[in-house]
Amino acid sequence: MSATLQAAPRTGDRQFRRRRRSGAARRPRLALIVLLLGALYCLAPVIWVVAAASKTSRELFTTFSFAPGSGFFDNLANLSAYGDGQFWQWGLNSLLYAGLGAVLSTLVSAMAGYALAKFRFRGSQVLFSAILAGVLVPGIVLAVPQYLLMAAVGLAGTYWSVLLPVIINPFGIFLCRVFANAAVPQSTLEAARLDGAGEFRIFGTIVLPMMTQGLVTVFLLQFVGIWNNFLLPFIMLSDQDKYPITLGLYTFMGKGAGDGDLYSLVIMGSAVSVIPLIILVLVLQRFWRADLLAGGMKG
């Protein structure tokens, strides 16, 4: 591949020169405009949610989409008042499921990914393929069997029934394997072993710090994934006090006959539930190293 790359500029020599003058000065401005348009496209709906969250249910259907409404604090108060502040309980539950679940998931993935990347052992290839195949199975079919399993051990309906299944994340293991390959040099491990360090000590003090950037990525992906998960908590939980936000919002969309609809609450709830995710993205973004994904194909 490197041979073709070096050859490339030469074969196109003449065209390159012709474009030189016009290109260099103008391009960045065009690039900026396109990028700003892209940013606008991506931000507009988010702005809409905020605008819509400020509208009374009447204004929602009668005023221009992006015009701010007059009911922001009313909606917020209604949301808070709903079922004695149950919404905030759901928010805390979501934080628990997504926070604890993502931490545990990242740790489990890091250990497994490290083992797969840095040790040669019988069955490692089979193990890795099996884990990868896990990505292909849609969660919808697994929900009911998982529920039956949880019920068999008496855990259905508890916090654990939602927490435990999300700890295993095949994609996370895949990423950790790639990242351990790239970030942890074999020579460092050998040196530590010669010094007589135990394997778990090596993992805790040398490997984990080296993998930090990748682990942040895995954590973020899994946090967002769990936060957005709907089906698993739906099938597992029946106690409303344990619901995560997604499931709580779903019950807002009243389904039974005679039930009012609560669009303004749903929209306010959506706006509020997106905020922690946005903050998380902004905070963790500087650690964001998705190049480990790109490295996946080589590894």
Binding site: L148, F234, I235, S238, D239, T251, G254, K255, D259
Partner: peptide
């Protein structure tokens, strides 16, 4: 506990 409308309640009940 509110688990959803008729269809949701029925499907949850079957699994339960």
């Amino acid at each position: 506990s509110e688990v959803g409308g008729t269809a949701d309640t029925a499907s949850k009940l079957l699994a339960a």
